[in-house]
Design a protein around this nucleic acid. Sequence first.
RNA 1: GGGGCGGUAGCUCAAUUGGUUAGAGUACUGGACUGUCGAUCCAGUGGUUGCGGGUUCGAGUCCCGUCCGCCUCGCCA
Length: 591
Amino acid sequence: MYRSHTCGQLRAEHIGGEVTLCGWVDTVRDHGGAVFVDLRDRYGKTQVVFGPPQGSELINQAKRLKSEDVVQAVGKVTARPEGTVNSSLATGQIELRASQFQLLNAGNNPPFTPGQDDLPSEDLRLKYRFLDLRRSEMQRTLMLRSQIIKGMRDYFEEHQFIDVETPILGRSTPEGARDYLVPSRVHAGKFYALPQSPQLYKQILMVAGYDRYVQVARCFRDEDLRADRQPEFTQLDMEMSFVDAEDVIGMIDGLVKRLAKSILGLDVALPLPRMTYDEAMERFGHDAPDLRFGMELIDCTDLAAESEFRIFRGTVESGGKVRGMNAAGAAPKYSRKDIDTLTEFVKHDFGAKGLAWFRVEPDGKLWSPIAKQFPDELLAKFAQRMHAAPGDLLLFVADSWPVTCKALYGLRKRLGAELKLYDPKTMHFSWVVEFPMFERDPEEDRWVAMHHPFTAPRKQDLASLMSDPGNCRAQAYDLVINGSEAGGGTIRIHDRQSQQDVFQLLGIDENSAKERFGFLLDALQFGAPPHGGIALGIDRFVMLFAGLDSIRDCIAFPKTQRATDLMTEAPGEVESKQLKELNIQIVRTQT
RNA sequence: GGGGCGGUAGCUCAAUUGGUUAGAGUACUGGACUGUCGAUCCAGUGGUUGCGGGUUCGAGUCCCGUCCGCCUCGCCA
């Protein structure tokens, strides 16, 4: 045994004991006749003292210790002299009087040290991830992640779920995100695909009678990255038989309540609030609204129709919408120039044609460069509709329905943060339900599944599935935390005919349906129970529970925005022999 | 694929709107010091300003290209 205790363990009760500690040198304070070394491991820090009455040879060696050296120190636990107790350290009551120590390995002056006050740039942190992971903040996050996953596993085990592993090497499916492909050596020219989710396998498990399945599943999607998106990520994937949406939502409600309590000490009232997709789009312009603050979107299309203002009127006449929001009290905080910046933001980022705005004057009247083009009484109606009070800033976007949604969602998110409309520490959990079954892909002019092609419509929409797919709503539910989609699931189609209908709607003809999903259609034919489930994004869960802004800080070895690993330098080239075995030839395209 | 921000000493940053020999803190090296805990004090080393080209009497600063990191739109069933 290298050590008898950890560096976070020793307390006053250990005084007098002979112990051995191992750890990294955090700081060295050399006083000539005495040397103080803070020894660190993931449990904490302990001060090790080298000095009289011990021999000077020990001190001379201790003087040579440097940051990040790995050291084993043997000695007696002693009480710190009066006045030298360090109350900011858990072990601050005691110190280790070293009688001997051994340098297990040198730190060699690394590019940065875990204790330094200014965080190094992220590329450096990723390149030397082993140093970055020594930082206490990273260690706390990874421990939190471990606790969250354990909490999830315990919960589902208590509810009779069975953990079943599903394949990583599967087959590519036509719909959805871009697949990561793995070439087959045995079958020249053929490829496996890494799973975007274990969706079909878990449905098959339901058909097989494993009526409560759970898995911590790694998933892969070859799409562009974001602060909250990685090409490989981890889902808590679950599926249940003989359930409706209420049952699945109720099961996750219980999990959320328990995790909030055990991890954050929060009491969450159940059931979690819910709203439909249509309501979320109407009130917030987005399917994962941040409910930590108000500032909801307000539709003024009818009022805009009365105005002579060309942009408003024209938008209404061409079937668009005029919607706005009231940034209460924001007028003094936003200069003309600031508003120009917001205008550029909605134009550039969301394709809006512009941003109309009014300032509410002390007398309650609306002022704006465009106010002249509105009769006073119409302005009064706008003011009333927008619940305007002096000092408020009213912002309007006149555009197509989707553009007003996107632009005002972006604006609301931005202003919510800028105006500090919420405490970043608060947590808000809710559900968005009844998503559309399909949306129109304008490029290919066809229907695509909003969630996935195995989603069941609401019972009342079953009859109009083929005749009016655009208005069908799904038995779908997304868990939203602080404006982030933290998970999503559906009740699945469990009869073959409905599944074939949906495939047909999506333009998957009978032959290719049989070729790609024949096993599913078979399974649905031979005794499939009603079933449904959900997948929670574990990385995002950790990010939100830890109050972090980047998913990369919740993953031990994350990828950069260009999907590379700066430490291993993956992806890398392979030897031509490997390519030959796989029957693969690299085509170098010149630009 | 589009837009934006950034890259200067090992690290974190500064450098007067193009002007002398590119600075500071920290780390590092040497020295002093028996109670510090971000120890302190003294001295010192350390630079291809990401890379390539251009404009200019003169470029860290301006222009073009390129690489890398981050944010974002598109994309992400």
